[in-house]
Design a protein around this nucleic acid. Structure first.
Lengths: 213, 213, 213, 213
DNA sequence: CATGAATGAGATTTCATTCAT
DNA sequence: TATGAATGAAATCTCATTCAT
């Protein structure tokens, strides 16, 4: 996925403000395509088109680089929170589809976000920030579910927390199953969501007689 | 989580047959508690209580150590496949609960099983084996779901593949949410499964006439 | 023979172009003075005056270092081939004296050139290159001998190949006998060659009168 | 050349007196076939058919093993000294042919004997002993040559020391050229010696007719 | 701002050697 | 006598990071 070599050499001598996002993005790209073990200063420099030592002009640490990458991911994730005026299941749908699209476009997000134990990749501070972001998503999703339960759109007797796990888990596996290079069983995001929503709404089936609509 | 230092120095000089599983288990322990980056020969030796160089008497490579760990995991996972004579949802339930318990007991299993990009940790051969194991689970779960659909126990019109994602995803998040040291929102495994089964069966709610209150 | 410790710390921070030959030469020096077993990165770094890890900035491998050393030797050896317009025995003499001088000055050359089993020192590629160089010398010497035989300057009935062995062997032992620190029996290069040439030309001796049998 | 695997497992539990030569010979075999770098305790044990640690029951050191090997070589070399009552050139011939045959049969001898700088292989003590052996050969050869000169069989005006170098050098190169697996240019030992002797005796060639001066 | 040289810490692995069995 | 387990020293090589230019 990384096209380090073809990338046209960017103009050298850029300002730190310009370099920092370049580096952070490159870090995410490497993380996504080759994994944490390959995220070295040398590889990063190659990806950006600068010397490895130059990285430390713009970031103090490799840790700081990863942190910056995480913050970019967080920004992306935060953009997918739908407007609060929509009804709960619509918001949930928008979030689900948005995240699916996002992770499809930025595989590194998946790599980071789906890992609940990323102290190793991100250092304690990065882990803290990611956990916070995940927590926000969790709360958001649960709030939507509870609101939908209150409105009687989904069964109230089901534990909203566990329903939240279901939504998040399905999202994770869907991304993983769709994203991989060898995935033979991809589904459109909408199709996935429809199943989730059907489950939530209580898919009646043994449909007895003609009372379906 | 690793208690290397407190562990009372185990009797030195053991047979390879005994050492090999000790080392493989220690590797899994480290993987679970500190992550792949800390799975070094030195750390491993410390965990087992032997010198790092001694590891290479019992395993040729670090790769071989990880491979052995993976095989232990695979064996554990394989044990959780329920007997085939049970009805499909009962088998699914047993698998779900079994895996939840297993991953609770062996957190490394989760770490390995949920990692979609484990080439780095496990090397190509290890990745292949793990993928194979995961594939087997996926197929098993989907087969149960399809059988249940055929029996009319769960809605036939829902895409069984996506239902499988849901089951697996919920399992993953459930483990992650329950396992963590700071998890405030734990549920009993049975409670989690009941929600999943209710969803699958199509929890009718608003349904039946005027019984809303 | 290595004076690593006395050497006044050379100016640090040199360009790769300058470091590479320094390192290659140091490798040859160590090879000559302490043997292949002592040609380690640490020793090499000490000899050059840099850290061992710095070597791998300038060469990818230890193998590459040895290869570079071999190429220096090959260049030196190639310089000793005399101009082709001279008569054969003059060319042979020039080659003989040139190589004697060369090996005297660069003992490592001897160590490499006389080693018939240098795969271990040089790796397969290095061995190949060295063999090629040795083969060139062998061919050159034999060609000179054959030409001298054709001119009637040395006995034609003697096997030129074996004569070549004689020339090369004498050269080897002469170097070894002369070079060592404790050699009590040194001869000037010219004196050695004169004996060789006398042998080749067929040193008549008891000459006086016709009393041969 | 090493047939470690096919060798029929020798009876275990032998006395040290029996084991020691087995080990020493195995060391020479490895030295000859794979080079000094492969002469490790593990390899040695495999060659002999015992555990590596068992070696140190019979020899204190690896150095001692090599030393023992050297002594075996010395014994072999010493056996090739011809009886002193023969005429000098006959003795030289016998020595030459004997050594050629010996080194052909025991390539390790060549490896050791032709290396004048073997401190690395043999340690200081081994080097001392080998040097001593070489020195004895050198003296023997020179003595033969001087005696032949005194008898008028070879030119007296030629430096006997250098003649000795010639004889030894030719022997070395002859062995190396003949022994190698890819040697295309082998000669019978006798043929080689005849050239050497012809050279020593002063091969008159342009002979034709009486134009001697 | 940019770089290449340099470095020390650490990782894997090999090996001679010791020791309990 | 024999062995397998254990070990520390050393070798190669990687990597984040510093510094002079």
């Amino acid at each position: 996925m990384s096209r380090s070599t073809q990338r046209p050499a960017p103009p050298r001598r850029q300002r730190t403000e310009d370099r920092r996002p370049q580096i952070a993005d490159a870090a995410l790209r490497i993380l996504a395509s080759k994994g944490a073990a390959h995220l070295t200063a040398a590889e990063l420099g190659r990806e950006v088109g600068i010397a490895d030592s130059t990285i430390f002009r713009h970031y103090r640490d490799m840790d700081e680089v990863v942190l910056a990458g995480i913050d970019r991911v967080r920004a992306l994730l935060d953009q997918t929170f739908p407007p609060p005026e929509d009804p709960p299941l619509a918001r949930l749908r928008a979030l689900f589809l948005g995240r699916l699209a996002l992770m499809h476009e930025h595989p590194a997000v998946l790599r980071l976000a789906s890992s609940d134990r990323l102290e190793q990749v991100a250092g304690p501070e990065g882990a803290r920030r990611l956990r916070e972001t995940i927590l926000r998503s969790r709360r958001y999703i649960e709030a939507c579910l509870r609101e939908a339960q209150a409105r009687g759109e989904i069964p109230a007797q089901l534990d909203a927390t566990v329903l939240g796990w279901m939504v998040r888990g399905t999202l994770q596996v869907a991304v993983a199953s769709t994203a991989g290079p060898r995935s033979s069983e991809s589904r459109t995001p909408e199709a996935v969501w429809e199943v989730v929503e059907a489950l939530l709404r209580g898919a009646r089936h043994h449909v007895t007689a003609g009372e379906s609509p």
